[in-house]
């Protein structure tokens, strides 16, 4: 009995990585023969639930409710414009929907400046939607300053997520 077989007998399930370690440990030249573990029943891939057209979920899935900004900036990046284009087209399809755009800033500015900066971001998104044909009367804006982070760590990754303008449906959506 090789030492590997001894190990295999002790442990019913032998992980591949573990047997490699064991081989190294035993420094044996003998070929290792193992039974292939029984195939597991595949878990079904997550069912893609299609949101009810015209619902808040539909808006979030098909358009995307959030656009992101660079540090201390409020001009729209190309990825932000693409998202806002989808928002505008969705909003033209559901003409009763009114929205509120929340401007947000990361924690790396002073609190009062961040209120003003986040207001600029909300307004950038609003102006773009209006330029794409959404009636200004359907859009209001609010500045959250740095008060509503969506990511809690003080890291570059979180700051990038926290610099955003988020379009929230206020009324007129189809109930899902």
């Amino acid at each position: 009995m090789t030492c590997l077989q001894g190990i295999a007998m002790k442990f019913k399930v032998v992980l591949v990585a573990m047997s490699v370690l064991a081989v190294a440990a035993c420094a044996s030249d003998e070929p290792v023969v193992e039974n292939t573990p029984p195939a597991a029943t595949p878990t079904p891939p997550p069912q893609r639930v299609t949101a009810v057209p015209g619902s808040v979920e539909d808006f979030q899935e098909t358009a995307g409710d959030r656009v992101f900004f660079d540090y201390d900036q409020f001009d729209l990046r190309s990825d932000a414009r693409a998202t806002l284009d989808r928002q505008a087209s969705w909003l033209s399809q559901y003409g009763n929907v009114t929205v509120r755009i929340h401007g947000n800033a990361d924690e790396r500015g002073t609190r009062e400046y961040n209120l003003a900066l986040a207001a600029r971001r909300a307004n950038s998104a609003r102006d773009y939607l209006v330029s794409r044909g959404v009636a200004a009367s359907r859009i209001e804006t609010i500045s959250n300053g740095e008060e509503q982070p969506v990511c809690s760590a003080s890291t570059e990754e979180c700051w990038a997520l926290n610099r955003n303008a988020t379009t929230v449906i206020v009324a007129g959506a189809v109930t899902s």
Binding site: L115, A116, A119, R120, A122, N123, S124
Partner: peptide, 9 residues
Amino acid sequence: LTLEDSGNS
């Protein structure tokens, strides 16, 4: 105080 109008403070 500061008043914000259309993104301008």
